[in-house]
Design a protein around this nucleic acid. Structure first.
Lengths: 206, 206, 206, 206
DNA sequence: AATGAATGAGCATTCATTCAT
DNA sequence: GATGAATGAATGCTCATTCAT
């Protein structure tokens, strides 16, 4: 037992490392060439593993796509959440979340490109981002910052603006795009141009 | 000559019929599975034609994609343009265009789904729609209806809202979605909630 | 009957004309792109005829190839034969035949290219040319101009030199190539360098 | 390590075996039907492998053609070169090279037929053989054995004779053909019938 | 646990040939 | 006689997935 434990631990640690090699490789490749244009063999090769090893860690090509997308969305949320949660104002949270999301995507284009790819084809990614958006918008509504009740289409519209912002930014647009995306969302939620600008410019970025 | 006419007519009518069978099949399939996920063989099979017959009518897979997308966008524009052009107010045009677009897409889900697919996978369609949007927004700006100058990201945001509206509507959301999408666009352009509602509700649909 | 006769004649004349359109088209196309790279549809199109019309005149693609090749070899022989037959010396005939063949091929590259293509793939063409070569060589042997008896391989060697000459000429080599090819053949037949040169330079070209 | 070795060896041995199955199949088929008339699927089927397996071993159809042709030309050169290089006389080298080449092609008709096909359809093979021919002819000229300077058409003529010899031999002609081909080449180079016979008959075959 | 050889269905495209009109 | 629409097998090539080792 005393011997077995470390071995198991070592094995599972190794498993985790190998798995990470695969997801890293997939992330790199898929962000460069797009999800569909990346083959399982290429992922395995990039991870310096054999072709068949892939299927010891993932059931499917679809599975690694899901895993990688989830990992990226989680990483992006981790990058943002402490500051975002320190904001009391729902409107500020909405603006901050969007602006930061777009800026992180621009700073880590690998993440950004993958998410843009995944947005259309993998509902889970969209849903994961929508989840946080809903919380922030709901908070703002509760605080009386936005005049209309929460509904699903307003979230769809927010996701659409977010996605458009990421695409524009990856396409070479300047950082004003993320500020504009954030203000557009606040306007959609019912704020005037002036209010939206004030909320957004009150946010200090790190 | 009296004999030749009907033959030529019959042949060219047959050609047109077969071509239509192919474009119809392509439209149906591409709207269901997406443009890239539809193969030439599937199109031929759906049209109950042999594989090679496809290439008697289209040079390329790309050609039928272009033809089908153009046909659908033209059909949608035809459905809308006379009324849209009769509107003098740029803001009304923006709202009308978006609302109608989404409602037509909902009434002809095959068109709608194709366009959603084309948006991502076939840039020309996006650009075609963007073109009309730019005209209407520019008109509104010129008329002093919108406070900010025209720029590309505001068009991106409009397209994003339009697309989100179509998707939501095809997903089962009610007709209020198209009204909301139109109002959101007006808010993005700087109108207040009340102004946006007034512009939008002033529009009579046929 | 009096009426039928001319009609049949007219028809068969028309048939011949249409057939000629097809063989001309085939000749043009096959000499440009090679035999295998020319499709039946292309031939029909070049002849301004419908696809299926081709099969009213030829059983096969192979058949038109044979017909065209035969026509070209016959045309080349026609271009040469009167002068060639006026030469009494077998050695002169051999040299003249080869030199003229290569020069005609250079002057009518369409013919030349087709024959080079056909040489390898269509035994009949080779045999047709070999036939005349055999006659001339046999005559020279009979006249005591060549020391060795006729055999098949000496004819193969002559054809090989002829073909090499045509290829070189079509490839841009100058007219000395045809003179050299003729002299090489005479040397193969046993003549000395000086004799071969004398025979060959005695020939006056038109 | 002691365990890994056999596995690696076994795997690479298996790889080599499969690759050999493919090249053997390609050689057999291409020699029978010609290079261009042999499809990748036919090669795979002849090797009793799946279609796609081919592409695990060769990037391209062109690659296996190159590999097979190179292998055969190298094998032929290996069969000849030691003896050929031991000959000091350029004329003897020319004659020996050609005679041996034809005899090996006759002894290994699969090689012979492939080379005949490659001559027409795969220029590199022709050039490879021409290279050695040029060396030998140049040597003979330098030694004063041949009266005329080296030029490209004389090499073309040599290749043509060589090819004709291989074809005749594969077609059932006797071994005298290779001797005759060699003598014809020497005659082309300017030697008299007697000199050519002497040079050629001085060569002892292994 | 890992390997990597092998599979086979799939893709876009071409073309000789047939046949109803 | 002529048409041209239609066929379907074939080609080179890719790739997700399986499995013996």
């Amino acid at each position: 037992m005393a011997l077995a434990m470390p071995r198991i631990a070592a094995n599972s640690a190794k498993r985790a490392r190998t798995r990470a090699r695969l997801t890293d490789a997939a992330l790199r490749l898929m962000s460069e060439r797009g999800i569909n244009a990346t083959s399982v063999s290429e992922i395995a090769a990039e991870a310096e593993l054999a072709n068949g090893t892939f299927y010891l860690y993932f059931h499917d090509k679809a599975e690694i796509v899901a895993v990688v997308c989830q990992a990226v969305t989680r990483a992006m949320h981790d990058d943002m959440s402490s500051t975002r949660l320190s904001l009391d104002d729902g409107a500020a949270r909405v603006a901050f979340g969007t602006q930061q999301f777009i800026e992180i995507a621009a700073a880590e284009p690998v993440w950004g490109r993958l998410l843009v790819s995944a947005f259309t084809e993998f509902a889970a990614v969209k849903e994961d981002i929508a989840h946080y958006m809903r919380l922030d918008v709901a908070l703002g509504i509760e605080q009386g910052r936005f005049p209309e009740p929460l509904d699903e289409f307003v979230i769809d519209a927010h996701l659409a603006i977010l996605r458009a912002g990421v695409i524009a930014r990856l396409d070479g647009a300047g950082p004003d795009v993320s500020a504009r995306a954030a203000e557009y969302q606040l306007r959609i939620l019912g704020m005037s141009v002036a209010e939206a600008r004030d909320v957004r410019s009150a946010i200090e970025r790190d």
